[in-house]
């Protein structure tokens, strides 16, 4: 789609060792603005370690990261957030006991000065929250409705809307659809599509090939800490991706007995 533009994030030969365990053994990925880059891999393939390196939670043992062409060093997740890299974690996106508007502005609370004191500006927070939720197609009873009353898909959507609202250039989604039902999944995928069209780079982590094929522009498969290459949309079939994720052999033999249901 945007083949001529420069990648917003370049990850070059990233290695990450935890003691004697090599979690990542040289992974390279380029992410382009306005594209959805799907990161596929089975459990333990190193997907989580890889995105945590990208979002500043882990420091790579070796390798380089370039963000908008410049080498990048994040000491804390906070640095990555202020640089414009936002991560939405599967089950840690929202705090169920808190209201939607408190969640939406968590860590970025709008403030109103009264003399020397500064207060949480609930009016602004509530208005912005209702506005953003309407854009995303979520109907709230009120901005003070607790997140616990929302469905899983709605929670992911709120988290994505929050990241976009606070100026994310890169949005990392950690298995946003893995715990969701069919309709909620399609809502989240529609949200991903909408976000991508705003020119934001999306990194979409999943182990579900069908979800990846639905929105992905590029596909990178991780297996045992290594990449097996990046493919563009149209260059690869779901079956090939599935085989790559499983390491090529085991699934081929299973395929017959399961009748193509995986």
């Amino acid at each position: 789609m945007n083949a001529s533009t420069k990648p917003i994030i370049e990850m070059k030969n990233i290695e990450k060792h935890f003691g004697s365990v090599i979690a990542l053994a040289g992974v390279s990925v380029d992410v382009f603005p306005g594209e959805c880059h799907c990161l596929l891999g089975d459990n333990g393939a190193g997907k989580s370690t890889f995105i945590k390196t990208m979002s500043g939670v882990h420091k790579p043992t070796a390798g380089e990261i370039f963000f908008e062409g410049k080498p990048l060093h994040f000491d804390r997740p906070r640095d990555a957030i202020s640089a414009g890299i936002a991560t939405v974690y599967q089950d840690l996106a929202m705090i169920p006991l808190m209201s939607v508007s408190r969640n939406f502005f968590m860590g970025n609370e709008p403030r109103r000065k009264v003399g020397p004191l500064s207060f949480f500006d609930h009016q602004t927070a509530n208005d912005v929250t209702m506005e953003e939720m309407k854009k995303m197609g979520i109907n709230l009873r009120g901005p003070d409705q607790a997140v616990g009353t929302l469905s899983g898909g709605e929670r992911q959507t709120v988290a994505i809307a929050r990241a976009v609202h606070f100026g994310a250039k890169v949005l990392i989604l950690d298995e946003p659809t893995s715990a969701l039902g069919v309709r909620q999944t399609s809502n989240v995928l529609a949200t991903v599509d909408r976000v991508r069209k705003q020119g934001i780079a999306v990194v979409f982590i999943t182990h579900n090939v069908r979800h990846a094929m639905a929105v992905g522009d590029q596909f990178t498969v991780l297996n045992r800490g290594k990449t097996l290459g990046t493919a563009k949309r149209g260059e690869v079939t779901p079956e090939e991706l599935q085989d790559l994720m499983a390491g090529g052999q085991e699934l081929a033999t299973l395929e017959g007995s399961l009748g193509g249901t995986v």
Binding site: P77, R78, I81, T87, L92, M94, P96, L97, M98, G107
Partner: peptide, 12 residues
Amino acid sequence: GGDAQAARYVGV
């Protein structure tokens, strides 16, 4: 108190 890890992820 609600979820320390989720709060840390957004910079609290």
